[in-house]
Design a protein around this nucleic acid. Sequence first.
DNA 1: GCGATATAGTTTAGGCTTCAACTATTGGGG
DNA 2: CCCCAATAGTTGAAGCCTAAACTATATCGC
Lengths: 165, 165
Amino acid sequence: MTVDAETALAHAPPGHKDELRLWLRLLTCTTLIEGEIRSRLRRDFDTTLPRFDLLAALDRAPEGLTLGDVSRRMMVSNGNVTGLAARLEVEGLVERRARPGDRRAQLLRLTAKGRREFARQSAAHEGWIAELLAGVTAVERGALFRLLGHTKISVRNALPPEPSA
Amino acid sequence: MTVDAETALAHAPPGHKDELRLWLRLLTCTTLIEGEIRSRLRRDFDTTLPRFDLLAALDRAPEGLTLGDVSRRMMVSNGNVTGLAARLEVEGLVERRARPGDRRAQLLRLTAKGRREFARQSAAHEGWIAELLAGVTAVERGALFRLLGHTKISVRNALPPEPSA
DNA sequence: GCGATATAGTTTAGGCTTCAACTATTGGGG
DNA sequence: CCCCAATAGTTGAAGCCTAAACTATATCGC
């Protein structure tokens, strides 16, 4: 009976507390880990997470990335990268050079110093993450990875489509 | 043989790429959801996530919270709450009053306007989260919730102990 | 070629965030 | 009572971040 279905729906719990609690827990986990990583980056390397992330992006692209590439990969705004890159350039970790054939764009690359510095930071970083996740078994990590993959897809599908890259 | 164990360890993959990939995926999920929530809060209510979070904390504590309470619940610094509360006070959503018997502390409470406003925002927020997580089944959500619980414990155990509240 | 549109990047204003230094108050121990 | 440590909150400097407005260059369609 349609009435039953409708009634069932009308009487269903009006809220989505379930999803909300999941989101809050997801956020808590991320906040805890991220805060600790930020704190250790500052303590051990006198740097910040955004700086580290930018170096990481460049480290994976030896041929260099434009500011726009970086902005898309880091999921941050364009203007953000401008300032970040400027600071890293002052510190001598990153260099800009023109992209041949396009006078609008410029390629960002790690300097030798930048590569050295990132290698140190990245090794420590990897250890920190392993340390923080040490209480999660390999099986659980596998399950989490898979479930978060579904979550990512769910969110992406619900998002307004980006201007196709 | 001890040699075998040691050898196995020495020959184990030196990295923890596995944990790293899990962390990056966790971060991506959180960043995607959080970014969308920020964007909708701005679009529909002309407000921000930190403001919303502060209202949410106060909504759950009708008797009021000190700035320090809020700072601990939101896991942000003390000075951060000072500015946040000041802005919300200007907007008339929050009010301060002295805590009887302690001239250092002040209680933060929602005004009537603040309660009204938060009710609107919070209903929308709950719907957004449900919408973004619609592609994750109830069973998966349950599993995620449990696994993230383990993760939270793992991280907390690896963290330096806080000055016991 | 040329005009419309899109892309690359910068700038500005404003808010968020932390850390460290600071003021004020409270609560002990001598 | 008085000093000292702890607690509550504020302030200032610096960096991170976004949206929106802007400049410059590239590209497409005619």
